[in-house]
Nucleic acid binder design. Structure first.
Length: 423
RNA sequence: GUGGCUGUAGCUCAAUGGCAGAGCGCUUGACUGUGGAUCAAGAUGUUGUGGGUUCGACCCCCAUCAGCCACCCCA
């Protein structure tokens, strides 16, 4: 084999089989998005570096995104996330858009990270946002949409659970523990890291952050309290709506859910594969989406889901279809040179009747042509040999039913359509 | 960005420092107008890449690339 140029690190090839899986996923999330009245949109794949520098940490952008200088000397970034583009798009037309708006998107993103299982440098992400509203009911709708997607793809609450918390609730609890406001970001980070450290190391880390022993004990009590949500009016209303939607079983209150992002101000949530505690999707409520890019403050709620982890999870639970429908319904064989024009003509009739048809592209032995049909998964094989052409007929074999009949061409079309259930 | 494990046929993997193999898949035939099954025969490798040690390297050493695992991060 000649030397081959390797693909870019962390990028994936989508062979037809993988493309079918991607399309399958897209169709399902699209279906759920539309069912809830969300409109599809997209931003540009290229953005100015400044757009992200304004919001995210500069270091993150510089070290974890693909940046380059264009010919005019401008720093351009392959979009690492959609939210800043969304904020700009909303701000640009803030006075003419109808709020609350419900938008969703599915497209490629790039992050310059070290690839490993479940993490690639090029990935697809589903983004769903409701903007211009500030209510627990809006949060609940979006949570419900996320859960409905899980249900739609066949994931059960025992497999993937959505853990929910609320930043304001946590803030009130911190105040009750007399944790000073300036320490709260560090405490949030502390909580975020809890599941990744052993208990003793975490305790030490907590004291290092500046918590007193008493505060640490209080914090632990708080994190273990599964009923804490009852002290939050927001969460009571969120869970009540989810209950009414019949999706309550997908959700669990968990004080450990914080989310790294600074702009979340209210309800936050993360869906996890229960077995591996791997994050499948995440999001939350924000008070101010567009002010950083020059608009008037707007509240909203949104979440994002990458295609990589959800695909791994679906595959693990056997929910990704293994076999995709074959590329065609009918293979028309070529018998010999003299009979080939009849084959091409018949194939065209089948296509005009709405069937997916391939003609074997060279004259070959019938066993070879049948084998090809079997392997690519066409259900029917049509033969126009000397006998058929002489009588204006066609022999049609159903490879699934192991039956064949010699019919007129009109009968043959009807035969295939009825067996495929397309009529 | 840090540390670790792994890289051998299209795929999954063997091979004590001494002739590079198996299963699956693939090609052809048994079968000149009929796929899957069976049987037979056949093809396929610069052992990721580049150096080094050695009489001799898939094996040992160094570097590099890629994948995986744990950190980091997770917008």
């Amino acid at each position: 084999m000649k030397t081959m140029i390797a693909s870019v690190k962390g990028a994936r090839d989508f062979y037809p089989q993988e493309m079918a899986a991607r399309q399958w996923l897209y169709e399902r999330l699209r279906k759920v998005s539309l069912r809830f009245g969300y409109e599809e949109y997209d931003g540009p794949f290229l953005e100015k570096l400044d757009l992200y520098a304004a919001k995210s940490g500069e270091e993150l952008v510089r070290e974890q995104s693909f940046c380059f200088e264009d010919r005019g000397g401008e720093m351009i970034t392959l979009r690492p996330e959609l939210t800043p583009s969304l904020a700009r798009m909303v701000a640009q037309r803030q006075s003419e858009l109808i709020f609350p708006l419900r938008w969703w998107s599915f497209g490629p993103f790039w992050r310059y990270e070290k690839p490993q299982r479940g993490r690639t440098r090029e990935f697809f992400q589903w983004n769903v946002d409701m903007i211009g509203v500030n209510s627990p009911e809006a949060d609940a709708e979006l949570l419900g949409l996320a859960a409905e997607f899980l249900r739609e793809v066949g994931l059960k609450p025992e497999q993937v659970i959505i853990r929910v918390n609320n930043r304001r609730l946590m803030d009130a609890q911190f105040a009750a523990l007399e944790i000073a406001p300036h320490m709260r970001p560090a405490v949030l980070k502390l909580i975020d890291r809890r599941e990744k450290m052993n208990a003793a190391a975490w305790d030490a880390y907590a004291l290092e952050v500046g918590l007193s022993g008493e505060q640490l004990e209080g914090l632990k009590r708080l994190l273990a309290d599964g009923d804490l949500w009852q002290q939050s009016d927001d969460l009571q209303r969120v869970f009540s709506v989810l209950e009414a939607m019949g999706l309550r079983e997908y959700f669990r209150y968990d004080a450990n859910i914080i989310r790294g992002l600074e702009y979340y101000t209210g309800t936050v949530f993360e869906a996890f594969d229960v077995q591996e505690s791997r994050a499948v999707l995440g999001g939350g409520h924000y008070d101010n989406l567009v002010a950083d890019v020059g608009g008037e403050p707007l509240a909203g709620v949104g979440f994002a889901m990458g295609d990589v982890v959800i695909s791994l999870v679906l595959k693990k639970y056997g929910l990704l279809p293994e076999r995709w429908p074959g590329v065609a319904d009918v293979l028309v064989t070529l018998f010999d040179m003299e009979r080939s024009t009849a084959a091409f003509a018949f194939a065209m009739q089948l296509r005009r009747a709405g069937l997916r048809v391939v003609v074997y592209p060279e004259i070959a032995k019938l066993p070879k042509q049948f084998k090809f049909a079997d392997r690519v998964g066409t259900r029917f094989v049509a033969i126009l040999g000397p006998d058929e052409v002489a009588t204006g007929k066609v022999t049609l074999k159903d490879l699934v039913a192991h039956e064949q009949e010699t019919l007129t061409q009109e009968q043959a079309i009807a035969f295939v359509q009825s067996r495929l259930g397309t009529v």
